[in-house]
Each structure stands twice: as structure tokens, then as C-alpha cells.
Amino acid sequence: MNTRHPRTRHGFTGWPAQWWVMGVYLFLYAPLLAVLVQSFNAARFGTEWVGFTTHWYRQLLHNQPALQAVLNTLILASVSTLIATFLGTSLAYGLSRWRFPGRDWIERSLSVPVFVPDILLAVGLLLAVATAQELGLGLEPGMPAMIVGHVTFQIPFVAIVVRARLAGLDPTLEEAARDLGATSWQTFRHVTLPLLSPAVAAAALLAFTLSLDDFVVSFFTTGPGATTLPILIHASVKRGLSPEIHALSSLLILAALVLTLALTALYRKPPIPS
């Protein structure tokens, strides 16, 4: 597909566009930079720059609630990612291999949860948890409910990513395996899954990132003792800004940076179906 024109002079490459683009990038990064800079600011109050310090980071190491929140965030993200990757991959595989009643309907609505505002999902989950409590099903607000909530918004993302990869696989490979006498499971295990693994890994990374990014769903389903980093940050911001919050938030920024770069690296290597 060679529609790109190498030597066009007009349109979106001149200096007005470049200035505009610079401005937009600055706008996108201003909040991140502000938090990073403030996390090294020696001032206890206010945002006036007083001097450089790593004091706030060192202080975090002695801040028990903050450490607990980091731990909770990681547990929540890991467990939910594990479950969602398994369920989402299996959903994508089923959708791409079998015809069954309701299949088209499921496929069409796969992306609906992606569009629905997180607060609606959160309120729905709140209702589900309350109902489960009423019925004595043991789904308490707190870590279990938060894991359920995160898995719920992760599954569609995982399924969409894996589904796209499955659609690009060469079907003759699976046919060959089957012709040579492999069972369905053997075909999946030794042919499909290895071909799929880059997409599954990417989907898992994506799900993990989504979990770290979430605040609203956790906020509505949390319970005593299940404070995550975003919830802690929210509560502290409500009380007033402090350098410790900036240091904590910088950890989240760093995590997003690392994860995004990992995703990019992962996608660049395996040729994406084209």
C-alpha cells in the first residue's frame, strides 16, 4: 500500500503544524511533568520550587499505608490480569472457531463494555456485590469485589486484541495439524497457542495497564483494608496536596512509562497481521 507521498510540500508538515504539534505534546505532558517535578521539590507546602530533594521518596519507605497500597495495587492488577487473560483468550478462540447460537450477538457486543463509561460499570458492580451479599454468596466489598470488577473491564480488551490476531492466522497450519491426526486440544496447544502467544502477552500487558489506570471501579467496590494506590491518592488529594502524593503518583507514571514501552517493543517485533 504505497499511498504515502514522499515529496509533497503541502499539508501538515509546515511550521504552523509543527508549532501546533509541539503545543499539543506540551499540553499532554504538562501534568506528568508537574507531578514529577513536584515530587522532588523540597517545599512542604505550596508549589513554589525551593530546592531538590529525594526526601519524599525516602519517606515513602517508612509509610506503612502507602506501602500496603502499592502491594494491594500490584496484587489486584496481577490477579485480575491472570484471570482476564485466560478468560478473554478463551472467549476469542471460541468465537473464531465455532458457530453456535448467540455467537454473532456476542461478537457484535464485544466492544460495548469498552465504550460504556466506567462509572456505570462501577455502579452495576456495586449492585452485583450488594446482591451477592444479600444472598450470602461471599463476594464482599474489598479485594475480591475489586478483582471481579477489574476482570470485567479487562475481558473485552483481551478478547478484542487476541481476536484480531486469530483472524490473521493462517488456517492451513491448523488444518495440517488436524490432517496429521492431532486432536483439537493438541492442535490448540502446539499450533495455535504458540502462534498466538505474542498477542496474548500483549493483551495481558494491556490488561495490567488498564488495571493500574483504573480508579472509578476500585473506588466503588473497595472495602476496609483494600486501599489501592489510586484510592489512597484520591483520598489524600481531597485532604490537600502534599509532596508524598506527588512521589506516590510518580510511581504510577513510571509504571505506565515502562509498560507502554514494553507494549511498543512487543508489537514492533512480531509482525502484526496485515
Binding site: Y25, L28, Y29, A30, P31, L32, A34, V35, Q38, T47, T209, L212, D213, F215, P230, I233, H234, V237, L241, I245, H246, S249, L252, I253, A256, L257, L259, T260, L261, L263, T264
Partner: peptide, 20 residues
């Protein structure tokens, strides 16, 4: 990638940063 990094950074953090 530079566009995508803020995209994946925690929403709450990017929002409260405007308070700063």
C-alpha cells in the same frame, strides 16, 4: 509512543496534576 504514554498513565494522577 509519546502520545500513548499519557494515555496509559493513571487518569486520576493526570487530573489532580491540574490542581498543581
Amino acid at each position: 509512543t509519546l502520545v500513548v504514554i499519557p494515555f496509559w498513565t493513571n487518569f486520576l494522577v493526570r487530573t489532580y496534576a491540574w490542581q498543581v
